[in-house]
């Protein structure tokens, strides 16, 4: 039976959905449930990863140090993972400390065209004998060939697996298949996929990924993640089992973990809101949903117009400041002409 390595970033990506307000109690409760279900890897931290808590990106209710310690205490067999974006996470201040706390899996991430930035962090994590995966975000912004080229760099730096993220929830299954095929041609390490559900395609895209040869998938309980959410973990596990894949995850217990997540972690279960559809179409990072909604209200604008303008400017995660700039310009324009309805 073919095995798919499932990673669960509910306690990291889900933080985007609640302005990074996960508490120690919530982290502990979900870690225990995921551990009992046999989830192989649980990722914990600020939505933008280690060291990203800030005024600009949103401050974590639970600092990295506490979040990782609490998770470590409550994970017995499940591995503890972190998302590391060089620039937010420094080696000296953040990564060394996280390794001392006992993280097992380090996923070093960069924008899809910026793999060069990850070499030092990958080098360091490998030198500490940790499992290291390379991650490229906003992968729809590069062609399959460019994605594969960038992934190859991460492999050469020492990444033991590679994950591409559909951060904007923009893909259709054929887009995913095309990328996995290109990656398989170029890489000799394992390939993984991280879906978002803006267009309702997260599970279908994940299935397309494994059918094309990927062997690692991400899923979040109830889809708890940025924007319209991620591939819904318990559904993903059920589908993979039905397809004949082994995940090592107990279905009943992951269903229980998802029930717990719905009750304990989120005020609202992620749904595909109108703005999610627009951000998916526009190819804008799902984590922008909350700030765009907030700023649209503040400037009395249609959030959908902001998303399309952000998409036109190819804005990426970390450039949240630009939302206000775009809103200001759109507001100026609407003073002289009404906002035009957009069609795609």
């Amino acid at each position: 039976m073919k095995y798919v390595l499932v990673s669960d970033p509910s306690l990291r990506d889900g933080n985007h959905a609640i302005q990074h307000q996960l508490s120690e109690e919530q982290i502990a409760a979900y870690c225990r449930a995921a551990d009992a279900a046999g989830v192989p890897i649980v990722e914990v931290g600020h939505g933008n990863g280690l060291g990203a808590s800030s005024l600009q990106l949103g401050e974590s209710k639970t600092p990295d140090d506490r979040a990782l310690r609490v998770a470590r205490e409550n994970l017995k067999t499940t591995k503890l993972g972190i998302h590391v974006i060089p620039g937010f996470a420094t080696i000296e201040k953040d990564l060394k400390h996280a390794i001392d706390i006992g993280v097992d899996v380090i996923r070093v991430a960069a924008h899809v065209t910026e793999a060069d930035l990850t070499q030092r962090h990958i080098d360091f994590a490998r030198s500490k004998n940790k499992t290291v995966f390379g991650v490229l975000m906003m992968s729809h912004m590069a062609s399959p060939e460019l994605l594969a080229e960038q992934a190859k760099k991460m492999e050469s730096y020492g990444a033991e697996g590679f994950i591409f993220m559909d951060s904007a929830g923009h893909y259709l299954p054929s887009d995913v298949t095309e990328r996995v095929v290109a990656l398989k041609r170029e890489l000799s390490i394992a390939i993984g996929f991280h879906a978002h559900n803006n267009l309702g395609m997260a599970i279908a895209n994940s299935v397309a990924a494994v059918e094309a040869g990927a062997s690692m998938l991400d899923g979040c309980a109830r889809g708890f993640g940025a924007g319209a959410g991620n591939a819904q973990l318990e559904v993903l596990v059920a589908v993979l089992h039905r397809m004949g894949y082994e995940t090592g995850i107990d279905l009943y217990k992951i269903l229980d973990a998802a029930d717990l997540a719905e009750k304990e972690l989120m005020s609202v279960v992620p749904t595909i809101k109108s703005t999610s559809v627009v951000s998916g179409l526009a190819g804008v990072f799902s984590g922008f949903m909350k700030p765009v909604d907030r700023i649209a209200k503040q400037f009395n604008l249609d959030a959908r117009d902001i998303f399309f303008e952000l998409g036109r400017r190819k804005i990426i995660a970390g450039q949240e400041d630009i939302i206000i700039e775009v809103a200001t310009e759109l507001a100026k324009r609407t003073q002289t002409a009404p906002v035009q309805a957009r069609s795609v």
């Binding site: 033991e160 000799s188 040869g213």
Partner: peptide, 9 residues
């Protein structure tokens, strides 16, 4: 199997 699916060469 520290990474599932690594190719054999």
């Amino acid at each position: 199997h520290t990474a599932a699916g690594a190719a054999k060469t």
